[in-house]
């Protein structure tokens, strides 16, 4: 096994599956794409799903497997959100690339090399509507020589005409077992020691996002060496320990304002990010059984408001205090609005 020498390469890149069949859990997609590899033909594709489920990996893997390292440069155009992607790029760069004809199908060095090119548009949901509209005709005109792969988190942000031209694949969040087996594999390669308990913590804090799990793992390994405990993992991930959230919520449920105020002060002094606090508190509130639906609705409404204000740059202490006081008022059924 490899010794514990960290190269500067992120593990996310290092352990990115190179082949479509290695992609975890997305069975339908893998089946369709393996078929593609055999018949060397494929439709336009649209991959959507939450982050860290393997969308980009799949797209890159299929492109590599179809063309091999030599032809890859000339046949595949990869654009993501950090490149400029306004309507001008669609009109010039994408169109120029799409228009170039390619030679007929001949197998080269064991790769299928089908007679078309691939344009991968990563994070397509951040493209403007105009840019997407400009793509419609381009897609059809050059469909003989070009295939488009769209990758996005929210399919609702892709305009309908584009979506209807593609075969859609939904990528599911990874289940706990698969996540653990992948992480274990990396641990073996890197010579890390993880308890089963730590593994399940890792999969629960990363919520089905494998990339996040691997990033946490690497950060923790860099900071704490080869054996990582649960607390260390949580401290790296920026997740607030459950006890803190619980005790905050407990303080809010009582009717003692000063106690809640003290708890808020404590959260701020410990340096926990308030947006993280809100999202974890949200889960606790939604899942608790002894709060009526109306109370939950009131609390959630307030949280939404506070979150928006935080994004606007409002002060963390005041917003958290406001949320705490709203929770308290909701629990005690005090009137909701102030005149």
């Amino acid at each position: 096994m490899a010794p514990l020498v960290q190269s500067s390469q992120p593990w996310v890149e290092k352990y990115r599956p190179k082949q479509v069949k290695d992609v975890a859990q997305q069975d339908e997609v893998v089946r369709v794409l393996t078929n593609t590899l055999e018949t060397s033909n494929c439709p336009h594709m649209l991959f959507y799903g939450p982050p860290g489920t393997g969308k980009t990996t799949t797209a890159l893997a299929i492109a590599h497997q179809l063309f091999g390292p030599e032809l890859y440069k000339s046949r595949v155009l990869e654009l993501n959100a950090s490149d400029d992607r306004g309507i001008n790029v669609v009109r010039t760069k994408i169109k120029d690339f799409a228009a170039v004809a390619v030679g007929s199908a001949q197998r080269q060095g064991g790769y299928p090399c089908p007679p078309f090119k691939i344009i991968i548009l990563d994070e397509a949901d951040s493209m403007t509507e105009d840019a997407q509209n400009a793509l419609r005709r381009t897609m059809e005109t050059y469909s003989k020589v070009t295939r488009f792969f769209f990758i996005c988190n929210y399919i609702s942000r892709i305009i309908e005409p584009l979506a209807s031209r593609c075969a859609k694949f939904r990528f599911k969040p990874l289940s706990e077992e698969i996540m653990i087996s992948r992480v274990l594999h990396i641990c073996q390669e890197e010579g890390l020691n993880l308890d089963p308990e730590v593994l399940s913590t890792l999969s629960s804090i990363s919520q089905g996002d494998l990339r996040r799990a691997i990033t946490y793992l690497q950060s923790a390994a860099r900071l704490f060496g080869s054996s990582i405990s649960k607390i260390e993992l949580i401290s790296v991930s920026g997740v607030i320990p459950e006890e803190v959230v619980k005790s905050f919520f407990a303080a809010c449920r009582g009717d003692n304002f000063d106690l809640a105020n003290k708890e808020v002060n404590n959260v701020i002094a410990e340096g926990y990010p308030v947006s993280q606090m809100l999202s974890q508190l949200f889960e606790v509130v939604v899942e608790s059984d002894d709060i009526s639906d109306e109370q939950k609705a009131r609390i959630c409404k307030k949280m939404g408001e506070a979150d928006k204000r935080l994004v606007d740059g409002a002060d963390e202490y005041l917003q958290l205090l406001d949320v705490a006081s709203s929770v308290m008022r909701a629990m005690c059924n005090m009137p909701e609005d102030f005149s």
């Binding site: 304002f257 506070a306 606007d312 740059g313 409002a314 005041l318 917003q319 205090l321 406001d322 102030f338």
Partner: peptide, 21 residues
């Protein structure tokens, strides 16, 4: 008094946000 605290802190949060904008 305890009953006023809620209201006051609500408005403090409200005006601080407005101030930021």
């Amino acid at each position: 008094d305890a009953e006023l605290k809620h209201e006051v802190c609500h408005w403090a949060a409200y005006y601080e946000h407005r101030m930021r904008l």
